[in-house]
Design a protein around this nucleic acid. Structure first.
Length: 786
DNA sequence: AGCACGCCGACT
DNA sequence: GTCGGCGTGCTC
């Protein structure tokens, strides 16, 4: 018997191995295998793609599997199909794709131990086997496989190892608990004794009453592993591993908090259950109760024996949200996100395999969880760009989720107040059914949004008079103000600080970027170059390329209002999770008057006392100068202003130089459909997605001089690929130099998915041939172009 | 991706 | 004379 195996390599090739008579478990598609690979036969982890009786490969070159360590597949057969789609569409190998999703806790290589067992050697050993035993004895019975091999140096090393394991003379230390029930570390009290350390004393006191506590719980109460270890070394406590009870409990189905639905919520809920169509967009403003609808729907699916996966953007997976979901489903839910430890990820992955946990909530990587009986996927805040993986295989979790629901034929619900233009377009094409929640659940009206035209202020300052006046009044009333600025929002765009004029490309309607070295304005969509303009064509003021970040806003505010309690909430101040949590707690408790913050502050948290939101420079919310800038401005304005007055009426002030920009105009008037329609017209006119499929190609060059070579090759490439894509010239990236590498980009467009897929195959091959030794990336459907 | 094999410059 | 640079070719 042979198996076809995918390995974590960037090549479109699978490998065949012979299955020996003795393996821990039988081969099965989707299971993990440990195989020797390459000249040195280093062990690698692979995934079984198929099982064959005969193969078309010279028999003497076929190697034997080292082991199949699990009795269950780590990828469901259907998700393997999904992987193939991802690998095709996003231009990565199958192996890379599989291993991008699989928690690395499952990946074993050379670093596990071989131990001598206690059994008497009663059978005859071959020469090689003898030698292995000898060397193990001299190393007090235990060695890493890698060092054992280095020392032994016999030809049939693995054969000998496998035989010795079979004969029971040596054992392999398990790489991962094949036991499906996750184990957890408990701290048990052994005896009491006077200790000197304050923390140690506290811990002993705590354990005196409980006798036994989960290590993870202790950590939550502020005890550290170090303290526990000290007590272990003193012999007062011990750490044991025990199966957790939670995973064995079947899904609790106590609807702890009865979800009452309003009539329009009920209509949406019922329509998903009827499932006449399979794809839905749950659409409604903040506070319209979208979450209640999807949680109730999820509950109903679990009641019918199906599992549910809820995907959320990175910043949304807060303890708050978790608590809310737990209040409906009990504690037996699977949590999965990038910041979990390897062990935790493995544990959730295994929960999915086992099928006793029915509700999973996670960020983009969770989309591949091998959930048993999966019957519904919910994608909350579907427009959020954190669903796009920014590494190979650059997949978009929303798209993968849609594909997964198609392959398994179950419903999917996208949820958003400000859907992506892509999704809106699909609704328009009737590929997705829109379920709209028109009114807010509470009677609190949406915040009144006032636009302040910065062009009309006499001289430029960060705060308009109107904003300052309202800010003072709000703080006097004892309420909070949130000033929003997106610091990452300025490249060297030619942006006039006195009238807000933005210099755009005449072909692409995208802001031009000023390049210092070349002293030129360059369009990052088509690469067209323009002579720089140093004076604003509208008001003749000098064009500046500077920006205004949170720090500067905070500083100026402190000078204006020395008595206000001001706090800054951005990547810098939130870096440390515990201080971040503290700041958020303090804000909720009303310890601050004004919060100056970036995107980070505007997501996932409800600040009850917040009644005024100020958007300082709405023009900059687009971030990168690409065709999606308008969409991002729109979404950001709606989201940030929506933070105001969740519990009592609030207001928002949007400062801008361009009040006529569609993204700003329609957002503040709450005329969302008008925005989408206008945006679609613009995209159609310029042939941008969703009317085409975009591929971002990027080169990272060590020396700028190699650009000539690349450009020449690129020219030839253009000819070969022009029947699949429209390809502009290669041009410097908006961020032309990052960590010493010179970046050049080109944005390819294919008319539809079919052209894209056939074009990508050739693209990949051509790149492999032409750009050897050059760092490049190929990203399909990029969410931003920087 | 990693790693080995292979053919040309500055050094004991 | 050799050590070592990284170009290219392979991995079941």
């Amino acid at each position: 018997m042979f198996v076809e195996v995918a390995l974590d390599l960037p090549i479109d090739q699978t490998f065949y191995y012979r299955v020996p008579k003795v393996v821990s478990y039988l081969p099965e598609v989707g299971k993990r295998v440990i195989v020797p690979f390459g000249k040195n036969d280093l062990l690698k982890t692979g995934i079984i793609l198929s099982i064959k009786d005969s193969i078309d490969y010279s028999p003497e070159k076929v190697k034997e599997i080292f082991d199949i360590p699990d009795n269950f597949p780590l990828f469901a057969e259907k998700t393997l199909e999904l992987t193939k789609w991802i690998s095709n569409y996003y231009c990565a190998s199958i192996g890379e794709t599989l291993f991008a999703f699989l928690p690395s806790g499952f990946v074993v290589s050379e670093s596990f131990y071989i131990k001598l067992s206690n059994r008497e050697i009663s059978v005859n050993l071959t020469e090689s086997e003898e030698k292995i035993v000898e060397i193990l004895k001299s190393a007090s019975g235990r060695l890493k496989l890698s060092s054992l091999r280095r020392k032994v140096k016999v030809s049939s090393f693995y054969q000998a190892i496998k035989n010795l394991i079979y004969k029971g003379i040596i054992v392999r230390e398990e790489f991962i608990k094949t036991d499906l029930i996750p184990k957890e570390e408990f701290v048990v009290l052994k005896r009491l004794e006077k200790v000197r350390g304050k923390k140690e004393k506290e811990l002993l006191q705590y354990l005196e009453t409980l006798k036994k506590a989960k290590l993870s719980d202790l950590k939550r109460y502020g005890f550290t592993r170090q303290t526990v270890n000290k007590l272990v070394s003193k012999g007062l406590v011990e750490i044991i591993e025990e199966k957790t009870t939670i995973a064995n409990k079947p899904q609790e189905l106590i609807e702890k908090k009865e979800i009452e639905l309003t009539p329009s919520q009920k209509r949406a809920f019922e329509e998903i259950l009827e499932a006449k169509t399979k794809k839905f967009l749950l659409y409604g403003v903040t506070g319209s109760g979208k979450m209640e609808v999807y949680l109730k729907t999820a509950f109903e699916f679990v009641k019918r024996g199906r599992s549910v996966l809820i995907l959320v953007p990175e910043l949304l997976l807060t303890p708050e949200l978790r608590a809310r979901v737990e209040s409906y489903f009990g504690s037996n839910i699977g949590i999965y996100h990038g910041k979990l430890s390897q062990k935790e990820k493995v544990s959730t992955w295994l929960k999915a395999v086992k099928g006793e946990t029915k509700v999973f909530i996670g960020t983009r990587g969770a989309v591949m969880l091998p959930i048993k009986d999966l019957g519904l996927i919910i994608v909350d805040e579907e427009q959020d760009s954190s669903y796009k993986e920014q590494q190979k295989p650059y997949y978009h979790a929303r798209e993968v989720a849609i594909k997964r629901s198609e392959l398994d034929n179950f419903p999917i619900v996208l949820v958003s107040a400000t859907p992506s233009v892509e999704t809106y377009y699909r609704v328009k094409k009737k590929e997705i059914r829109k379920l709209e929640l028109k009114e807010r659940v509470s009677n609190v009206p949406l915040p009144y949004i006032k636009v302040v035209n910065l062009q009309k202020s006499k001289r430029f300052s960060i705060f308009s008079e109107e904003l300052l006046k309202t800010l003072e009044n709000t703080v006097k009333k004892g309420e909070q103000v949130f000033l929003f600025i997106n610091r990452r929002g300025f490249f060297s765009t030619s942006f006039c600080l006195s009238c807000g004029f933005i210099v755009e490309c005449e072909d692409c309607c995208v802001p031009l970027t000023y390049h210092k070295q070349e002293k030129q304005l360059i369009c990052h969509m088509c690469g067209k170059r323009y002579k720089p303009i140093y004076r604003c064509p509208k008001c003749n003021a000098r064009l500046e390329f500077k920006g205004y970040g949170t720090e500067r806003v905070e500083e100026e505010l402190r000078i204006l209002y020395p008595n206000f309690k001001i706090v800054r909430l951005d990547q810098d101040t939130i870096k440390n999770p515990s201080t971040g949590a503290r700041i958020i707690k303090d804000i909720k408790e009303g310890k601050y008057d004004v919060i100056v913050g970036t995107q980070i502050a505007s997501k996932g948290h409800n600040f009850p006392k917040l009644t005024l939101v100020g958007v300082l420079m709405a023009d900059l919310l687009g971030g990168a100068p690409d065709y999606m800038a308008s969409e991002r401005i729109f979404q950001t304005i709606v989201h940030t202003t929506g933070r105001a007055g969740r519990f009592k009426p609030g207001a928002a002030i949007v400062q801008t130089f361009n009040p006529e920009l569609p993204a700003i105009k329609w957002a503040v008037e709450y005329k969302f459909n008008s925005f989408y329609e206008e945006e679609l017209v613009a995209r159609k006119l310029l042939n941008y997605p969703p009317f085409t499929k975009g591929v971002l190609v990027e080169f990272q060059l060590e020396k700028i001089s190699s650009f000539q070579k690349i450009e020449k090759e690129f020219g030839k490439l253009k000819e070969t690929l022009s029947s699949f894509f429209s390809i502009p010239d290669i041009s410097p990236a908006p961020l032309p130099k990052v960590s010493g590498k010179y970046r050049f980009i080109s944005f390819f467009r294919a008319v539809d998915e079919r052209k894209l897929l056939s074009g990508i195959k050739i693209l990949k091959k051509e790149f492999l041939n032409r750009f050897k030794g050059i760092r490049y990336k190929i990203e399909v459907d990029p969410v931003r172009i920087v």
